Amino acid sequence: MRNSAANGQPTDEREAAEQEATVQKTSLLALSRRSRRAEEHSGSSDSGVETAEFAVPTPEAGEADRSEEVQMTDDAAKRQGFKHWRRQRPFIGGVMAVLGGIELFFSGQLDLGNMQIQFGIEGLQATVVPITIVVLALLSIFRPAHHVFYGIIALVLAVYSLIGVNLGGFIIGMLLSTIGAILVVAWMGPRGPKESEGVRSR
């Protein structure tokens, strides 16, 4: 019995020593593999432990990626919201009429040194007509229910600017305002989503 017990103790110690040795070998192999992978990715010749630490992705980088994704989704949502808002009103025609009114206004306020270029009744038509066209265009954008009324008045004023405001802002302002007013009048109403249009067509 004593001999068996005496023989059992060294075998247990040997097994424990062998297990520790295998654990150390596996850990060294894992560290060497990590260091090789890190060197392949980074191309630097640092020590195995340091490159393994740097090769592991940090949670801060993941958080930055998530924040970028959230910003991208927010931007996409804003663009979709603006597209939907634009489709519900005569946006392009209103913008063109606004640009034409601005051009008419500044064409009536030209100063070349001591010479001021201004046709028509001085100061009145060159100021009132462009401002009225701009206001009507903005009303047609933000109050699209009465777009026909606003568009007709803006069209009349745009044509009249050929006589009253520096030949219609040297023709450019009159053309912009006229085309914008025609687009405002010809607008067919708000557009629904594409799915609802497909259901209606059926």
Rank of each mutant, 00 (worst) to 15 (best):
L112Y: 12
G164T: 00
E122F: 04
Y150D: 08
P130Y: 06
V156M: 01
P193H: 07
L112H: 09
G120C: 04
V199M: 05
M1C: 07
G8R: 09
V185F: 05
S42K: 14
A55C: 06
G113F: 07
S196G: 04
G198L: 14
S47E: 10
G93Y: 02
M96F: 12
N114E: 12
Y150F: 10
R86W: 14
H147W: 00
V98W: 10
F149E: 08
G173V: 05
A21G: 09
F91T: 01
S107P: 04
A6D: 13
T58Q: 10
E195N: 08
T73L: 11
V134K: 01
V135N: 08
L124V: 11
G101R: 02
V156T: 06
L28F: 06
A154M: 03
I117T: 12
P90W: 06
A17V: 04
R89W: 10
A64V: 13
R66W: 15
A17W: 03
R34N: 11
L176S: 12
T58M: 08
Q71D: 14
A137M: 01
A38Y: 11
A61W: 15
A145C: 02
H147Q: 06
G151D: 07
R202I: 03
G164A: 05
I92F: 11
Q71A: 14
E197V: 00
A16W: 15
Y150T: 05
H146D: 12
R36E: 15
A126C: 13
S47G: 08
E60D: 14
T132C: 09
I152L: 02
I152K: 08
V49W: 09
R143T: 01
E39P: 05
A145L: 04
I92W: 14
T132G: 07
V184S: 03
I117Q: 09
G151Y: 02
A30D: 09
H146G: 02
I179W: 10
S45Y: 14
Q116K: 04
H84T: 10
P190H: 07
Q118L: 01
I172D: 06
R191A: 10
G113E: 04
R87F: 02
I133P: 01
M174Q: 05
R79F: 14
L104F: 11
N114S: 02
A77M: 13
I153G: 03
V148M: 03
L183D: 03
S44P: 12
G100I: 01
A21T: 12
G101A: 04
A137V: 00
M1Q: 11
I121H: 00
K25S: 09
G8P: 08
I102N: 04
A55I: 04
T11M: 13
R14Q: 08
R143E: 09
A55Y: 05
P130H: 06
L155S: 00
T132I: 04
A5C: 05
M96G: 01
T11Q: 12
E60W: 07
E69N: 10
